[in-house]
């Protein structure tokens, strides 16, 4: 058995080594936050997801696309079918060509992807001082630190320290790699009106929108973890039975 412990340690160290392979280079270390989706049994908080979606729609969506999400996916946030339809129908999209060969505007449907704020990347850059606002569908998976990083970034705006000069359209952020970010501080207290009595603070907005973006990047997480627990328990019991069987089969060999 001492070998299996050795192997286990080896695999652990591999995980550790790869995890620490490249450190983000900002002036501050990203603090760990507590999230309801942490850990093996973690789940999303539907309230936080809906609030986070509200923050995204009212603030982030002005510049950031989420092109991998469809409105129908929002049913996972706890919205009814009618609510999803209503959310989708708030935007319009150019469809067609119709039978006469003409393109036409129609309200969006649940099967449509989230509306992109810009026609194309060029337009997005032009509107944002040359910087391209990244698509947010995968943002928590695409950054070291995931949700912790998004939360830290949104709450990490500060005055540039003395001796640091910011270019035009640049802002100082403690957690952005390189510390210079093109996005102005997007959130501030009382910016979005929550309907469920949750405090309307910058901290709460950042927390909720990070929660929502984690869901957007990993919508399968809850079913994945639930399935994983079943698979793990099955394999554990199976391994136990196989170990007992192995002991039984080998019992005669050791003595001879």
């Amino acid at each position: 058995m001492k070998y299996s412990i050795f192997i286990f340690l080896m695999i652990l160290t591999i995980g550790f080594a790869s995890g620490s392979a490249v450190a983000a280079e900002s002036s501050h270390k990203i603090p760990h936050q507590h999230w309801s989706f942490d850990g093996v049994f973690g789940t999303y908080d539907r309230g936080a997801l809906q609030r986070g979606f509200q923050v995204y729609t009212q603030v982030c969506a002005a510049c950031h696309s989420m092109k991998h999400l469809s409105y129908r996916n929002l049913s996972a946030l706890g919205y009814s079918e009618a609510e999803v339809k209503a959310i989708a129908a708030q935007n319009t999209v150019t469809d067609g060509p119709d039978d006469e060969g003409e393109m036409f505007e129609r309200p969006m449907k649940p099967s449509d992807k989230f509306k992109n704020p810009y026609e194309n990347d060029k337009q997005a850059r032009y509107a944002n001082n040359g910087a391209l606002p990244p698509d947010l569908s995968l943002i928590t998976k695409a950054r070291h630190g995931g949700a912790d990083y998004i939360y830290a970034l949104l709450t990490g705006y500060a005055e540039a320290p003395e001796g640091e000069t910011l270019g035009a359209g640049q802002h100082w952020n403690k957690y952005m790699p390189g510390n210079k970010i093109a996005m102005a501080a997007p959130l501030s207290d009382d910016m979005v009106g929550y309907e469920d009595g949750t405090p309307a603070t910058l901290d709460q907005y950042a927390r909720d929108v990070s929660h929502f973006l984690t869901w957007a990047a990993e919508p399968e997480m809850e079913v994945r973890k639930r399935t994983g627990i079943k698979v793990f328990i099955f394999l554990l019991i199976f391994a136990g039975i196989m170990y007992a069987t192995k002991r039984k089969i080998w019992a005669g060999v050791k003595k001879s």
């Binding site: 299996s4 286990f8 695999i11 995980g15 790869s18 995890g19 392979a21 490249v22 093996v40 998976k141 695409a142 950054r143 070291h144 994945r224 973890k225 399935t227 994983g228 627990i229 698979v231 793990f232 394999l235 554990l236 199976f238 391994a239 196989m242 170990y243 069987t245 192995k246 089969i249 080998w250």
Partner: peptide, 29 residues
């Protein structure tokens, strides 16, 4: 039987990563 037992222990680690930390061995970029 010995291979089966060893395989199952190995698979426990494998599914541990695949289901609970599927991106830990990859790179965010």
């Amino acid at each position: 039987i010995k291979d089966t037992f060893g395989l199952l222990v190995f698979l426990l680690l494998y599914v541990g990563y695949a289901f609970f930390a599927p991106n830990d061995l990859g790179h965010p970029d």
